[in-house]
Write a protein that binds this DNA or RNA. Structure first.
Lengths: 153, 153
DNA sequence: GGGAGGGATGAGACTGAGTATCATGACTGT
DNA sequence: ACAGTCATGATACTCAGTCTCATCCCTCCC
């Protein structure tokens, strides 16, 4: 039995849920902890070529179910994963640089409950993504990709 | 020059935008006007086997850009298309039967503007989907598919 | 009604994201 | 140290959508 002084809390969380601590899982977790922005499954597959494709996807699913990472869509619909820093939140995605932010306001949830009454059903989940031009891109005056126009919701 | 007494207003809208009225397009539009629920591109491909796959996708893209149909995601992330009945709206998707509803409240847009101030960027689009159990499914006490739990946002 | 020109189509190969299968390999508790 | 079981990797497959390019057929104009 080893005591990990500076071990990953992510790994600990998985172990607490009864999942084994295996080398591929440790490598995947280590890899994505280094990233401070959104990533694709393909990024991990490329970065860790000795780990099987299926294992990467299986681990991603595990982490999603444990709430450790979350899945979101770029404005084009392309999937991205991102480390979840807070319990429940929504995402902002910059359409020019792809930077991902998190936000949370109780207002959103209150609003949803309100809407629930009109909608004729019980709300059991939601997906909210805001597509923005982040401050940095605005300063740098980066052009908006053309495909954005065909995807505004 | 033919005058279509009961012609499709969708077709007219496309023509007004300078697109040609071709047989495949008419067939696709006719097909999806019959549907009063969400559909997949694959549904159309299956229903219209004599129309090329690429053409179906090209037409879908056209209709998306013209705002005639809209694209949304089931809770699992599977894409669905649906006829847009009103200008700007959001969707409710029943997680058990897949029924798609539309809703619009000015409150949502006001809220988003408010959030925009905190978020440090300019909001240029958003995606909002509410996953619900519709009244009909609730009455019939239909079981919630298990995969829903792994996808709550 | 008959071209001319260019936008639209279809066949098919390709990509990207993810799943299914299954024999083999490696953790963990005792 | 072992047994049992969970996890892995190779590979083939599916689903959604894109790309290419030769051919077609709409529309406009005469």
């Amino acid at each position: 039995m080893t005591v990990e002084i500076r071990g990953s809390s992510i790994l600990a969380a998985l172990e607490n849920q009864g999942y084994r601590s295996t080398l591929p899982r440790r490598e995947i977790i280590e890899n994505l902890e280094k990233r401070n922005d959104g990533f694709t499954a393909e990024d991990l597959v490329r970065d860790l070529p000795h780990i099987g494709r299926a294992t990467v996807f299986r681990t991603i699913k595990l982490l999603l179910e444990s709430g450790i990472i979350c899945k979101l869509s770029l404005i084009s619909g392309e999937p991205r994963y991102s480390l979840a820093h807070t319990e429940h939140h929504h995402h902002t995605v910059c359409v020019t640089c792809g930077a991902i932010g998190e936000f949370h306001t109780g207002t959103v949830e209150r609003l949803l409950r309100l809407i629930g009454n009109d909608v004729g059903g019980t709300i059991i989940g939601h997906r909210i993504e805001l597509y923005i031009i982040c401050a940095k891109c605005a300063r740098e005056n980066r052009p908006i990709p053309s495909n954005v126009l065909t995807h505004v919701s």
